[in-house]
């Protein structure tokens, strides 16, 4: 690998990580603002105009906080858990195609995606989201506190139950698109219309499992505050807590971006319409790619809004209800979805 290539990759990585951090900061603000408006409050509005710098003030405060490690905790694993959580969250961003190829340097084109053409990108995402639970489980276990341990355990159980349905919900998309490569899936949707119209059930199951996977309400049992204090991060403080928190929001954006890629046509702007031909533009030209990038981000952030909106509308599930829903409803439904999709595909071909 030559030096230019390396430099470009570093720049790409820098942009992506910063995108993630900024997005997470403003998602926290958005969460607080939206929850406030739903409850007829105003939300943070003192730090900067409309509270725009609130998140930075919060991060600054977290940096200044004392980092307390419980005496009974296993120090090394206690410190390792947030690193795993944030590391895994960042890794997922490497395969998400945020934009098509934007610039061409030395015969190679680069966009805002680290490994967009990876042929098993979908598998990487599924694998990474399940590794993400290691951070949570480890945080719970190493704190040596009953609340944290319960939080970690719940998170693992939840992950095992919902990972299955999530994987199966994606199979429908893979059957239709015939690839595990995210770019090819997007190209297929650009040509044939978005997957949400062919796989509405798959989208619904994926949305529900993504909520469970990112520990969001109504499935936020690992951090159910009435029962478990803070859940797996009860014993965390300072920037370690900040990292766990950040990882959570990074996961939400990643899930939203994946949903936008798999079901909402990625960077396609209007379904069933060939915008490039309509406007007489080159579909790989800069204007179209940039518009696609904006479309992709807007879809992802609309889904983020849905995540937040759901959190402030629905009460938390009980543990047995969670398990019932996962094993008795979502799993059979996703299996039926695969069967029906397979049969229809067979008949059409």
């Amino acid at each position: 690998m030559d030096l230019i290539n390396l430099a470009i990759i570093l720049v790409q990585a820098g942009i992506l990580v910063n995108l993630m951090l900024m997005a997470a900061a403003y998602m926290v603000l958005a969460e607080r603002k939206i929850s406030a408006y739903i409850q007829l409050r105003l939300g943070p509005n003192r730090v900067g105009p409309w509270g725009l710098f609130q998140s930075f003030a919060d991060v600054f405060k977290l940096y200044l906080k004392e980092d307390i490690v419980p005496a009974a905790a296993d120090y090394k694993f206690h410190a390792l858990a947030p690193v795993i959580a944030i590391g895994v969250a960042v890794t997922v961003y490497a395969v998400i195609p945020f934009s098509g190829p934007l610039v061409t340097i030395g015969g190679k084109s680069y966009g805002l995606a680290m490994a967009p053409n990876m042929n098993v990108a979908l598998l990487v995402i599924l694998a990474m989201t399940s590794v993400g639970v290691y951070g949570v489980a480890l945080a719970g276990w190493s704190s040596n506190s009953k609340y944290s341990l319960m939080g970690g355990l719940r998170s693992s159980a939840q992950m095992i139950s919902y990972e299955l349905s999530m994987g199966l919900a994606v199979v429908g998309v893979v059957l239709i698109g015939g690839s595990l490569n995210l770019i090819e899936l997007i190209q297929y949707q650009t040509a044939h219309g978005w997957n949400i119209f062919y796989q509405p059930l798959g989208f619904l199951i994926f949305l529900i499992t993504a909520l469970a996977e990112t520990n969001r309400a109504p499935f936020d049992l690992p951090e159910a505050e009435p029962e478990l204090v803070g859940g797996y991060h009860t014993e965390y403080s300072g920037m370690k807590f900040g990292l766990l928190y950040l990882a959570e929001y990074a996961n939400i954006l990643a899930s939203s971006a994946i949903m936008a890629t798999l079901f909402l046509g990625g960077w396609d702007i209007i379904p069933f319409v060939d915008e490039a031909a309509l406007l007489g533009l080159d579909p790989t030209g800069l204007p179209m790619v940039l518009a696609g990038h904006v479309a992709f981000l807007s879809k992802a952030f609309v889904l983020v809004f849905v995540f937040i909106w759901i959190r402030w509308s629905l009460p938390r599930f009980r543990y047995d209800q969670l398990m019932n829903l996962g094993w008795k409803v979502l799993l059979p439904l996703s299996l039926a979805n695969i069967a029906v999709t397979g049969i229809v595909m067979l008949l059409l071909n």
Partner: peptide, 18 residues
């Protein structure tokens, strides 16, 4: 659930009490 979401969505556009 959709009804509940509709309710919270409408809430967002009502005047605040703060």
């Amino acid at each position: 659930i959709a009804r509940g979401l509709g309710l919270t969505f409408r809430q967002m556009f009502r005047p605040t009490f703060t």
